[in-house]
Design a protein around this nucleic acid. Structure first.
Lengths: 340, 340
DNA sequence: CTGAAAGCGCTTACAG
DNA sequence: CTGAAAGCGCTTACAG
């Protein structure tokens, strides 16, 4: 290895040119070997392969992507990466994308509109080939603008009806949960609803309302509490609810975190589940079946949501579809346990 | 907007050249505005800014990174992104890196050596500026090789002593947990250990051993079971252990997932906690304080692990340190609840 | 089958 | 203060 060669390699690793020189061919030929172009003479291919191995050549994707106008990278934006929901969705999406040679980059907005914008822009600047986003924005304008350059699939929350989206059928899930409570004989059914600025919050409350209407049950003033999708919200709202309305027989909680908060409140109030108050939670959670009593939940097909979103995105990225916006609703599943 | 301009913009968004033409200056000047070079005339700066806004210009980071030889991106590799530990670590790291203008890309190896290699290589090809990795490899050769090109900080698992690493003080945590059990009066203390190919598994078992030795307690044959860090392992090993050794008074379980499995086994066996068997788990977990009884745990400073790792990496990336390998051990915290 | 050359979109000495 | 030009590391018509 000559000195200059060695220097370059130490800096950044070997380049195509280094490989070409060592193999005694042109850079074009090396590139052809890398890109599996058939026309290269077996003999030359061998020489190139050997040189690559010796120099531990690793292609520079920055240059390659710049030239090819595609980065084989997908960006995913979630409100909180530590949220189990986003996590499972990400895992599902990742599996599918990886199979097709895409790398997935994840970042989170911490449920902050400004950070969401910043991180989305970073993805655009990096020229990702596609975007999977769970936005906290109600205005779809920004996503629509981005989608003119890069395919976008929305997950869970729908900012724009003009773009693809994948989520669970929240209305059916909530309807099903409340129907189950009615079937069990409960009549005074209250709810702790999620953030109304998010699709899931809105739709789960709607499902609750429809179910009660369907069975001709009233929704007394104060039976609907807003817990903002966070544990503390679930805790405080449940506390207030049960203090102000001791006659409540059953509770439909619109998310797992709020559910855990609500359980804590019920425990503190010294109430028995389900004798004093029954509870059904949207979203399954680790340990839901291990606590006392095990909790009835509406489970989302989280992995499938991620996989489906990834597939829709792949179709757009590979221009396999010219369809308009597709809104996919996946079926939720009621898992009945001892809490109802 | 002239036709050619429009076409280019539709394809990939506006380029520097488009902005330059529209603003009536050279691309160099536009670049200077973007990079906040002071020397640009206010008047020209204005024109450029306006043109950028009108064209919704977004800089191509691929080109920029290629030219600057730095991508302002950090890669993080974890065995399972859906694991709460990796998650919190990622969140901590992300916060710190984001503050310094770095974007973090995450991918997981599914605890598979081959996938680990593939994903690591993808990061290298993308020319990330730094790497945060929780490897499942015991051989540090690969990471050491990568680290000659790109700074690497190891998290949780130490493949190579020659590279920076951050983890909790597993030995102290385990020692502390077992000491606590002894103090409580338990003498027949068994353990469900983690995977012995991982630092955490090895060290937590070592801590258990040292504590028993310290108190002069025997470790009967069969008191050490290997649960492989997964829930099923915890479940099966706990089942077998308590069947074969009904005299066991207390259990030290080396991870939260195995702990949850163990709890399930104990429940099935109809044993009372802590009367029939006490239990202490390494790693806190959601609901640990809400189940009956609440579980005593050794909590890891997970966020801090991520933050610390990010800071070490930043120092290497910014060449603020020429120190040799730094092995950081963060202090665990025993949280005593009713299970012991 | 192969190489020389142009070009992807930037940044940055260099000259003026 | 500014522009023309070189170059980052690739890929890909084009000619031979």
């Amino acid at each position: 290895m000559v000195a200059s060669e060695e220097r370059a390699i130490q800096r950044q690793g070997a380049t195509l040119k280094d490989v070409a020189e060592r193999a005694g061919v042109s850079v074009a030929t090396v590139s052809r070997v890398i890109n599996n172009v058939e026309t290269v003479l077996p003999e030359n291919r061998e020489k190139v392969l050997r040189a690559m191995a010796e120099l531990r050549y690793s292609p520079n994707d920055l240059a390659r992507s710049l030239r090819k106008m595609t980065s084989f990278t997908v960006g995913m934006l979630a409100p909180e990466i530590s949220n189990p929901f986003s996590n499972e969705v990400a895992t599902g999406a990742q599996r599918v994308l990886q199979e097709h040679g895409y790398l997935m980059m994840i970042s989170d907005s911490q449920s902050d509109l400004g950070k969401e914008e910043k991180n989305l822009q970073a993805f655009v600047d990096k020229r990702v080939d596609g975007l999977l986003v769970t936005s906290v924005d109600n205005d779809g304008a920004r996503l629509e603008r981005i989608s003119r350059l890069i395919p976008v699939v929305q997950i869970d929350h729908v900012s724009s009806e003009k773009l693809d989206s994948v989520r669970v059928d929240n209305i059916e899930g909530a309807f099903h949960a409340v129907s189950h409570l009615v079937t069990r004989g409960y009549r005074r059914i209250a709810t702790i609803a999620g953030r109304q600025s998010q699709t899931a919050g809105l739709e789960r409350l709607e499902g609750y309302r429809r179910a009660l209407a369907f069975y001709g049950l009233a929704v007394p003033e104060g039976y609907i509490r807003y817990g903002d999708f966070v544990m503390e919200g679930g805790y405080h709202q449940c506390h207030a609810l049960l203090r102000e309305h001791p006659d409540v027989e059953a509770l439909f909680v619109a998310s797992n975190f709020m559910g855990i908060g609500a359980l804590r409140a019920i425990k503190e109030l010294g109430l028995r589940i389900p004798e004093d108050v029954a509870i059904c939670v949207f979203d399954d959670f680790l340990m839901a079946d291990m606590i006392n009593p095990p909790i009835t939940v509406v489970a989302q097909p989280v992995r499938a949501i991620g996989e489906t979103a990834a597939r829709l995105l792949l179709e757009r990225m590979q221009e396999q579809t010219t369809l308009g916006a597709r809104q996919i609703l996946l079926k939720p599943k009621l898992i009945v346990r001892a809490s109802t």
